[in-house]
Design a protein around this nucleic acid. Structure first.
Lengths: 361, 361
DNA sequence: AGGATGGCCGTTAGCGGTAACATAACAAGT
DNA sequence: ACTTGTTATGTTACCGCTAACGGCCATCCT
């Protein structure tokens, strides 16, 4: 015993100690101890070197780094996180990856997080609140430094978890409601209202709505609510409505448009709940030789990049995706002048892009 | 001291012990101990209940679950993983989320992983090998149960890490090369060749290539290589080529098409490296009143769903995205009759979809 | 009856790191 | 010479959970 101890001390002496030969079991995963033995310093010193924390002499630093590199050591963040009670992960929970909107939000988040040492971890819910609850639970069990999630509507259990978590929470995309902690987004009610006003101002009166059949897409619902509210104020009611679910959005846009124009031939405007089906509608109208925006006007929502390549520019309203992601990440990263209580709400204002599918007045 | 011990023993007695009032510090995050004290059993038993492992009587199980629910306890997977040396995460590293191809692969992966208790964690590289290396390092430091990553080309350091990791590795999308461990994908060289043959068979001879200016998109490169090889065999060389980077792919497709048709008016076929720019090209040709596929034929690659909504169906070749994701996940999940050595290569065969943009012979 | 079994639950010893403190060596201040 | 400080390193005690094992009781054989 005493011998062993002495031996160890010797290793720590200034005399360059023998670099141990490669580990006995080549298959076992490496630990700090392996690096420490290979470089003749304590585990603590190795830890300090690898994290760039605390004072270490230049010579030992190099020796340690060299040893770590030679062995191919990869630190174990699990152990590190447990010991330090710090995790550099941020949970990001979104409804879908195929909507394009969310990847863009993610881009904004990543951009900002990049230089904070934080790292996003994505979870997808497919617009299911139960799935969201599961994903959230799973994420919280890894004790992330923060959570960003889409929407303000969650199951009761999710709400409770979020409130209890003791970490910054940012609900994004939407601000029409009460956030658990912070929120960044736009008012979809207002967005719908604003679009309705623009359409009415251009003189359209026989207006139809075409959207997704998703009971849990609260934002689309809110847009429709705002839209109808503004119409009502002008004494106008929706001339028709059509919903879809699944399939290629572009194709569905075509089909729905055909259906509406067939069923209600006198409609003069089609408001789509997203740009993709709107684009499909636009292509359909052009194919069918319908005068756009003379006979029929069109508008979508989101301002997706795709639209730039279309034969005509679809009227839309951008949802400030990048900015939302950025702001959310800034809140998590603590880059914002934080309010005392914590919860802050950032409302961004989407801009209406008239495009070529609404009559100029 | 002794008193405290006795006290604890009492708690473990059969008499229903007092349920402690809410924890002193309401802000502190809960641990197994809190649940154990609240329910009057040992931490170990609580752990067993929450993991559904080992024998626990129905009555205590319920008591524990009730206590956990009441407190809002969320297990700490960090500690759990460290103790058990098991992590239910699978790293998935892909170049981009905006390509649509990758979200689809992800869908396939999720589908299969869902019922294995494994969970994907996504990392994005933006087609940068260095970034891939960083992401990989970060992921491995969480000791995942497996890694799925796109492509066969990685930095030397990445290769080393993958080889050392001691976990199943699946390289996806591409099989033209040597995988570290397993691989699932298609041969892009062959895909390019096959498309060239179809085009030649239809009688086109003045063929141009339009693609991305991404030095690290090896799969696009391989397709082009296979394409040119097959052309060469027929004594044909590319009449023109055009590259782009960044921006809206649809719009870029238009612009590039215009550029090529302008520069080389006698081209009779445009081969695009992806469907999105192909779609842009198609829209351009239709707008310009060019006879497709009579005067000019078009083809893309990927078989994205978007194409279904276009005025005419673009010829393409699907990349078996879903199947790739599924197969990769099955390998990781150990669902496959695993070979003794581990590494297996699954080659899927893409199908050519002629669409309406190649002359029928 | 006496041991064998199995259900149920507790105790102990880590997992691989890190915070916090302790130590050693040497330079500088007074 | 003695404190005081600084730099570079080691030691100790966890972090929160689980594997492994052990103990106790009731039940079931033979």
């Amino acid at each position: 015993m005493a011998l062993a101890l002495t031996r160890k001390k010797d290793l720590a002496q200034k005399a360059p100690p023998l670099n141990r030969p490669p580990p006995a079991d080549p298959r076992r995963t490496l630990t700090l101890r392996d690096v420490s033995e290979a470089s003749g310093v304590s585990e603590m010193t190795v830890s300090r070197v690898l994290r760039n924390r605390g004072d270490v002499s230049e010579t030992t630093r190099e020796r340690v780094l060299e040893a770590a590199r030679a062995l191919g050591y990869v630190p174990n963040k699990i152990a590190g996180a447990l010991a330090s009670q710090r995790v550099n992960l941020v949970g990001v929970i979104i409804p879908s990856l195929s909507n394009m909107v969310f990847p863009e939000v993610l881009t904004g988040i990543s951009e900002v997080l990049e230089d904070t040492g934080l790292q996003p971890v994505v979870g997808v819910t497919n617009y299911s609140p139960e799935r969201e609850e599961t994903v959230l639970y799973e994420m919280l069990s890894w004790r992330p430094s923060g959570v960003i999630l889409a929407g303000l509507e969650h199951t009761e259990a999710s709400q409770a978890m979020l409130a209890q978590a003791g970490i910054p929470i940012v609900e994004i995309m939407d601000i029409d409601g009460t956030p658990v902690d912070s929120a960044v987004g736009i008012s979809h009610v207002r967005a719908g209202r604003q679009m309705a006003e623009a359409i009415l101002a251009a003189g359209y009166r026989r207006i139809a709505f075409l959207g997704t059949q998703m009971p849990n897409d609260h934002r689309a619902k809110k847009r429709l609510a705002g839209f109808e509210e503004a119409l009502a104020k002008a004494g106008v009611t929706l001339a028709d409505r059509e919903f879809y679910s699944g399939g290629s959005a572009l194709l569905k846009g075509r089909e729905m448009t055909a259906a509406v124009l067939n069923r209600t031939p006198d409609v003069d405007f089609l408001y789509y709940s997203n740009d993709m089906i709107g684009a499909g509608g636009l292509l359909y109208c052009l194919d069918a030789g319908i005068d756009v925006p003379g006979k029929v006007g069109l508008a979508g929502f989101n301002g997706v990049e795709l639209l730039d390549g279309l034969p005509r520019k679809l009227a839309t309203m951008d949802a400030c995706r990048l900015e939302i992601g950025r702001a959310a990440a800034e809140i998590i990263g603590g880059k914002r002048p934080k309010g005392i209580v914590g919860g802050e709400v950032i409302e961004l204002t989407p801009t209406l892009q008239q495009g070529d599918t609404i009559r100029k007045i």
